[in-house]
Design a binder for these strands. Structure first.
Lengths: 146, 146
DNA sequence: AACCCAATGCAAATATATTGCATGAAGCTG
DNA sequence: CAGCTTCATGCAATATATTTGCATTGGGTT
C-alpha cells in the first residue's frame, strides 16, 4: 500500500461503502506503480479469490465516478486505471508502449503543460487534461534489435 | 478540400497508391474541421457510394501507418481520425465532449506543452505526444440546464 | 415480519475492431 | 500472350472490451 493512502478511508471519503471487493480492487490499482487494464486487475484479483469480471468493471466505474480512480486512455483498445490525483499524487503524464502495452507513469515535471489560458477561456466544462506519450519502451526497443 | 492539400499527392508522397477508395476516405478525413470515428467515416462514404466497413478500417490503418492520418484516442471507446500533422497542420490538442462524443481541434497555442526535456532524456522511442481535454462542450452544457 | 436498496453474479447483448479467405484487376516475366 | 504475383477490396466469421438485464443475497428500515 502507498504509505499515504488508507484505502478504506479513501473509499468512505468518496462516499463509497468500503465493501471487500471495492477494497480489493482499489488495493490492486493503488499498489501498482503503473496503471492497469480492467482485465489485468481482474486476473490479479482472481488469483487470490473469485470475483466476477462484471463486478470489476462496475467497481471501477464507481471509483472513477467518485474521483478515487482515474480512467486513462491508451493508444490501444482498452482503458487503463490508476489512482486519481489527490493531495499525495499529482497529475502526471503517461507513456504507453505500443508493443507490450505497458503504461508507465512519468514524473509530473518531465513535461510541463500550461493549461491556465485554456481553463480561463474555454467555453465548455473541462474535467481533465490527459497527456500521453506513445512509443516503444526501452525493453521492447532492445528486444527488437536482438 | 483544404486548399493546401492535394489528397492524391499526399497519398503518393506517402508511398500509397491513390486508389479511389483511399482518396475518398482521405477526403472525408481531411475535409472535416474535427476528427471522426471510423464509423462516422463509413457512414459518410456510404451516402455517396457503397464501400465495405472493413475496407474503411484497413485504409485508415494504412494511412496511419504511413503518417498521412493520425489516430486519436478519446475518452470513449472508439478511435477518431484526423489529418496527421504536416507542414500546413501543426500538432494540436483536442477537446472531447463526453456527452455528445464530438471532438474539437483546439488551436496549437491554446495549450503549451514543453516536451523538449522529455525527448532528450526518455530512454525509449517516442512517436507521439497526445494531449486531450475531456469535458462537456458548450452546447451539451446548455442543453443540460434547459 | 415485510420492505427496500445496494452489491454482486451470471448470461446475454453490444460496440468496435480484426482475421481469414475469395475474387478480380494491374503489372511483370518468360 | 499465358502464367504468375501482388495488392485492394469484399464478405463472413471471429475477437476483444465493455455493458445490460435480470436474479439473488444480505443489511438496514419501517
Amino acid at each position: 500500500m502507498c504509505h499515504h493512502c488508507n484505502y478504506e478511508e479513501l473509499l468512505s471519503g468518496a462516499d463509497l461503502e468500503a465493501t471487500p471487493n471495492r477494497v480489493r480492487v482499489l488495493e490492486v490499482v493503488g499498489d501498482n506503480r503503473f496503471p492497469l487494464s480492467a482485465s489485468d486487475i481482474y486476473k490479479i484479483l482472481e488469483r487470490s479469490s473469485t470475483i466476477n469480471r462484471v463486478t470489476v468493471y462496475r467497481i471501477l466505474d464507481r471509483l472513477v465516478e467518485n474521483g478515487v480512480v482515474e480512467r486513462i486512455s491508451t493508444g490501444g483498445r482498452a482503458f487503463y486505471y490508476g489512482l486519481a490525483p489527490n493531495d499525495y499524487h499529482q497529475p502526471h503524464p503517461h507513456f504507453y508502449c505500443k508493443m507490450c502495452g505497458q503504461m508507465d507513469c512519468l514524473s509530473p515535471e518531465s513535461l510541463t503543460v500550461d493549461t491556465e489560458a485554456l481553463w480561463k477561456t474555454y467555453p465548455g466544462r473541462i474535467d481533465k487534461v490527459e497527456v500521453r506519450i506513445d512509443g516503444i519502451c526501452k525493453n521492447c526497443e532492445k528486444r527488437q534489435t536482438e
